[in-house]
Design a protein around this nucleic acid. Structure first.
Lengths: 244, 244
DNA sequence: TTTTTTCTGCTACCAGGGTTACACAGGCTG
DNA sequence: CAGCCTGTGTAACCCTGGTAGCAGAAAAAA
C-alpha cells in the first residue's frame, strides 16, 4: 500500500481540503455540509479539453489535480495559460459571476477530481449565504490581481524576466536546506504557454541560464543553483506577494 | 450659458447617473440614498497621477470624466492601460476585494468628479447589503473578462489586430447614418498604452490604414471609412460581446 | 524487447515592432 | 505677436523572439 498524494483521489477528505482552500476556509462545518449536498463528484482524466461553452453549464471545484485555463488563437494554434488552477480553486468563476459564456479552453493537466453543480444552483447558494462573500470576494481579488499582473508582464517585460518570475513564483517552500527546485513537472511547452511565449524560446533561455550556471535542467526538472541571480533577473519592479 | 456635458460637474444628477451604471442599477432608491450618505465628493483635475498605495485608503466612484488604471515599468518608463474607467465605475476594486495594496497608477484623463469613502466603510456597507451583490458580482465578472481578454490579446495577437479591436470596441453607437468616428479624443500615445505598444507603432499602423483608405485621421479624431475591412483585421477569433 | 510517442536540444532564418531621432503642425500661453 | 508645449508624421536602425525544421533522449506503450 503506497502513500498516495494524488494517486488515490477517491479517498480525499473533502471537508479537510476545502477548509484549507482560500474559498471555503471560513465556512461553518454545517454550512459546508449543506453546500456539499448540492454538488456531485466529477472526474476528468489528464489531457481532457473542454471549451468554456461546453463547461459553462456547471460550476466546478477542484479537489485534486491541476487545471489549465487558457485562451487560444485558432489561426496560429498558440495558447496562453491564464490560470493554472489547483485544488481548492473553482471554475469557471467569470461565467459564474456574469453568466456570459467564456471563449476559453480548460484542460486537465493531471487526472482531476472535482465537485460540480449547475451554475444556477451555485449562484443561488451564494445569494443565500452572504457569509460566503467574506472569503469569496478576497478570492476574486486575488484572481483579478493575477490577471492584471499577467497582462502587465506581457506588455512591459521581456521573456527572460517573465520566465524568471514564473519560476520563482512556483517554487515550493520546502525545507530551506534542500536544493531549490520546481516540483511541478511542467514541460517547456507548458512554461512557454504560461509566459505567453513558445517552447523554443523557453528552451533557449533555460540553456542560456544553464551555461551561466544559474540553473540546471533535467527532463521535467529544474534546479535553481543561484537564486540570487534569478531574483535579480526577475526583479525589475516591485513584486506582489504570492498568495499563501 | 453653454450647454455643458462634463463642463459643470457640480450639478450632475448623481442618483440618475448611478441608476444607469452597471454597479448600482438595481438598487432601491432609499438604499441608494443611505449609501450616498457615506460618501463625500472628490475632484481630481486632468493629468493628476496617484499610485495605488496612496489611493488605496479610499474607494471611489466616478461621476464624470475618465480614469486610466495602468501598470508601469519603471526601467523603460513604458505603461499599459489595464482599464479606462468611466462614469459609474468604481476603483480600486481589486484592493476593495482583498485589501492588498496595488502596484498600479491611476491617472485622470479628464477632470474627474467622484464620490469617495474609506475602504473599510465600503467593505462594511457591502457586507450589510447582500442585495448589492446582484449587480456587483456581474460587474466583477465583466472586469475579469476584460483583463483576461487583454492578456490573451497581448500574448496571441499582433499590434495591427489589437489596434483594430481597440478602435472597434470604442466606437460610440451613434446615429448609424453619421460617419463612424471615435468620440474619445485619445492621443496615439494613449491608444498605444491601451494595446501594450508604443506611439510610433500606432502611428505607423494608422498611416498604413489611411493609405489603404480604411480610415482617415485628423488631430485627435479618427474616422472609419471602411468598417468591413477593419472588422476583418480585428476578427481573427470569436469575439466577446462588448458590454452594453 | 521493439515500437511509438512525448519531450528536449539546437540550428538557420527573418520580420514585427521597439528605440532613437528630428521636423513640423496646431494650440495654448505669455 | 513670439514663445512654448503637446501631438503628429517619418526615417534608419537593429534586436528580440517567433517560425520551421530536424535529430536524439527519455518515457510510454505495444
Amino acid at each position: 500500500m503506497t502513500l498516495a498524494c494524488s494517486a488515490s483521489p477517491a479517498v480525499v477528505d473533502v471537508k479537510a481540503l476545502l477548509h484549507q482552500s482560500p474559498l471555503f476556509a471560513g465556512l461553518d462545518d454545517t454550512v459546508l455540509d449543506e453546500m456539499l449536498s448540492h454538488f456531485r463528484r466529477e472526474t476528468w482524466k489528464q489531457g481532457r479539453q473542454v471549451t468554456g461553452l461546453e463547461s459553462g453549464q456547471r460550476f466546478h471545484i477542484i479537489l485534486s489535480g491541476r487545471l489549465k485555463m487558457a485562451q487560444v488563437n485558432p489561426d496560429t494554434g498558440r495558447m496562453v495559460t491564464l490560470f493554472l488552477l489547483q485544488p481548492g480553486d473553482g471554475f469557471d468563476v467569470i461565467c459564474l459571476l456574469d453568466g456570459q459564456p467564456d471563449p476559453l479552453i480548460f484542460e486537465a493537466r493531471d487526472d482531476l477530481l472535482m465537485l460540480s453543480t449547475p451554475m444556477q444552483e451555485a449562484r443561488r447558494w451564494i445569494e443565500q449565504h452572504p457569509d460566503f462573500n467574506r472569503s469569496f470576494l478576497p478570492y476574486l481579488g486575488q484572481q483579478m490581481r493575477t490577471l492584471a499582473n499577467l497582462a502587465g508582464d506581457l506588455a512591459l517585460h521581456d521573456t527572460e524576466t517573465r520566465l524568471a518570475r514564473l519560476i520563482l513564483r512556483h517554487i515550493h517552500h520546502e525545507q530551506p536546506d534542500q536544493p531549490l527546485r520546481l516540483i511541478h513537472n511542467l514541460s517547456h511547452e507548458s512554461l512557454a504557454e504560461m509566459i505567453g511565449s513558445v517552447r523554443v524560446v523557453v528552451n533557449r533561455q533555460l540553456q542560456h541560464w544553464q551555461r551561466e550556471g544559474v540553473v540546471v535542467t533535467r527532463r521535467g526538472e529544474l534546479i535553481i543553483k543561484e537564486l540570487e541571480t534569478l531574483l535579480k533577473k526577475a526583479m525589475h519592479f516591485p513584486r506582489h506577494t504570492p498568495h499563501s
